[in-house]
């Protein structure tokens, strides 16, 4: 049964061996196999092709495949390392590993920086931050005057943009996060600590595979 299962999953485009992924991430081999069960579910929710499309990602996050969200888009784009419009299994595991409790803080800081660097300039620019604040207000159905939004952005920049050049570079970001560690709160998913225990429904195949290898 294990051999048949292994042959089947090797045909999935973008599939990578759990041992390889475990070697490069904070996950164990069994946890990568458990994640494969989750990946299969997500990647076949709309289009059964073994790849997570943006609509499937949105469906999983919002229970609605049409719900657009700037920050979900950014996370999808960062998971889609090859930038081909879909998330493959290896990309899924490597990216989720950033959110593992055991992953180095430096990786989380870098991922968050790239998340906020909307236009991939290597900086978080003032206009980008304002765009993100406005997107959040729209998502939350909150109404703040433009003056208040400007004040929030100005105040944040006055704390983060230490050299005053109108943009936040990586070093400034690191210092800002060090002074405001709660900014990384959403960069850790406690679920990932031991996914095989947290999600026992995924363990079946993992145990079969472990015993058959």
């Amino acid at each position: 049964m294990g051999c048949l299962f292994t042959k089947h999953i090797k045909q999935i485009p973008g599939y990578e061996e759990p041992t390889v992924l475990a070697g490069e991430t904070s996950f164990t081999v069994s946890e990568v196999e458990a994640l494969y069960e989750l990946f299969k579910k997500l990647s076949s929710s709309i289009i059964v092709d073994g790849l997570i499309h943006k609509e499937e990602f949105q469906l999983a996050l919002f229970k609605n495949s049409n719900t657009r969200n700037l920050f979900a888009d950014r996370i999808f784009d960062l998971f889609d390392v090859k930038r081909n419009g879909v998330i493959e299994f290896g990309e899924f595991v490597r990216s989720l590993s950033v959110f593992h409790p055991n992953t180095a803080i430096s990786e989380k800081i870098e991922f968050a920086f790239r998340l906020y660097d909307l236009r991939h300039t290597g900086f978080i620019e003032r206009e980008e931050l304002k765009e993100m604040v406005l997107a959040l207000l729209k998502e939350s159905d909150l109404c703040l005057s433009d003056d208040v939004v400007e004040t929030i952005v100005d105040k944040t920049f006055s704390e983060a943009d230490l050299n005053g050049d109108g943009k936040i570079d990586r070093e400034e970001w690191k210092e800002f996060v060090a002074r405001n560690p709660s900014l990384l709160k959403n960069m850790t998913l406690p679920y990932l600590k031991d996914i095989t225990i947290a999600f026992p429904s995924f363990v079946l195949y993992s145990e079969v595979e472990d015993s058959d290898i």
């Binding site: 469906l59 999983a60 969200n69 959110f99």
Partner: peptide, 25 residues
């Protein structure tokens, strides 16, 4: 009142809540 913009974004946006991925199990 002063709000840290990044604090607002990271704590409030549902787009960051990847725990929802696991609820689809």
């Amino acid at each position: 009142p002063f709000f840290n913009a990044f604090e607002l974004i990271s704590s409030m946006s549902s787009g960051f809540d990847l725990s929802s991925l696991f609820e689809s199990k």
